[in-house]
Design a protein around this nucleic acid. Structure first.
Lengths: 235, 235
DNA sequence: ATCGCGCCTTGATTTACATCAAATTATCGA
DNA sequence: TCGATAATTTGATGTAAATCAAGGCGCGAT
């Protein structure tokens, strides 16, 4: 199946690696393993140590907290071209989350050694790595802001707008089951269902299963579920 | 006042820079500025671009979201020896938070250029920078876990244990006003007050103004505010 | 001292969201 | 196509924490 050749090609196409020299890519490829998971399979548990990081080729991985009582909270849904585990690799500490395949998934596991070599030989690569981690950090800060400052409806709207934005189109498919999406947004499935229902009723969106159409991006962006306080009182 | 000399010395003592060569330190010092803030002064607003990052020499800075409606949520309280702004610097995007002095504070502002030079010349430094950002990321993940999986009492306990732990002692002082602490923990001041009262009543801690004594670390760690479900019912 | 003013506490009430409990609707293998 | 199982919706009820509204108290200035 020519997997070896594939690995080099896939690596070279990742944004992070695009500017590396051929020799560097070969170096990385040596320490890279191909990983296939079936839907539901656990890649690693909370507490694992990682000697490298992962890139999704196709499929989908969820990263989630899992408490002993069985409650679970999805932190991130990782799709094709995206990576995860870098921070744990650099920190050399136990991983705080669980990684599990949401569907049949192919990953590349890239060993630390090749990455460190690339950092040593190419400081521009080091900078890209730093910028990458910084973006990740920014995303988490955004999440913290959402959780602590926005209502559940506002979080859902933000999420929908993000999906609509990246696709360019105003119609798109939810990237996972509503149960998973709800957890990602810190909601129960029941609450998510009710919110989508409300938005639908008030003519903001149209929902059909996992397919969602945003009818008016601008209006949705302004939508505010809180009762508007009067600007000034007479009297 | 010999500030120039001071700067090099302070830089050289930061964990991040400890292993840099003398020449590198000099290089950093050239692009470093001494910043003095009075209590309440705003260092930068949300949306700012940073061409470097900050290290606290003495005093305290709070990083917080600020919504137009004036609500504010403290993300982080940064003390002596700690740094902030690296991620924004590497990302080259607007800063998502506001930075404001909680007390009279002295900072060093370290220009991007010197950092980039250090990264170019010393890949071990680049790695330390990567590890540093990774730790920061880990901390945020921890916060997200706390906000979404733990009750307000559990968040307070976690915070107290962290303070008690770092100090070695079981008695310590809150690092800021209760108002700020409450915001950091995603609570209202009222709720924080009630929780401290409860913990105090149930003999877990003693509170006197900002001074708190943890009476039994182990017991506090196990303390759980949720009513314990019976393991089995007699039938 | 004692006045004034933030900081903190305390109590009463509200509310957004979770939880519990069915009913309904997809999905998929045989 | 059918039946089973999981996903989603819908309704009724519960609750943790916020909000609203007064007090008390510590502390620095006079």
């Amino acid at each position: 199946m020519g997997k070896q050749i594939d690995i080099g090609r896939v690596l070279a196409n990742l944004p992070l690696f695009q500017q590396l020299r051929e020799s560097e890519i070969v170096n990385l490829a040596v320490g890279t393993r191909d990983v296939w998971l079936t839907k539901g399979q656990v890649l690693f548990q909370k507490g694992s140590l990682l000697d490298g990081f992962y890139v999704v080729v196709h499929g989908q991985i969820k990263l989630a907290f899992s408490s002993p009582q069985g409650q679970e909270k999805v932190v991130s849904i990782v799709g094709p071209g995206q990576s995860f585990g870098e921070a744990v690799m650099f920190m050399e500490r136990p991983c705080p989350v669980l990684a599990q395949a949401l569907e049949d998934t192919r990953l590349l596991y890239i060993a630390k050694q090749g990455i460190f070599a690339a950092i040593d030989h190419d400081s521009a690569f080091a900078r890209r790595m730093l910028a990458g981690l910084s973006m990740r950090l920014h995303g988490l800060i955004q999440d913290v802001e959402d959780y602590s400052l926005h209502s559940s409806t506002q979080r859902v709207i933000g999420f929908l707008l993000q999906l609509a934005g990246t696709g360019g189109s105003v119609e798109f498919e939810l990237p996972a089951s509503k149960h998973v999406i709800a957890s990602r947004l810190n909601l129960t499935p029941e609450t998510l269902s009710r919110i989508l229902h409300n938005l639908s009723e008030s003519g903001q969106i149209a929902v059909k299963g996992r397919r969602i159409a945003v009818l008016d991006m601008a209006r949705l962006r302004q939508f505010d579920d809180a009762p508007r306080p009067p600007c000034a009182k007479d009297g």
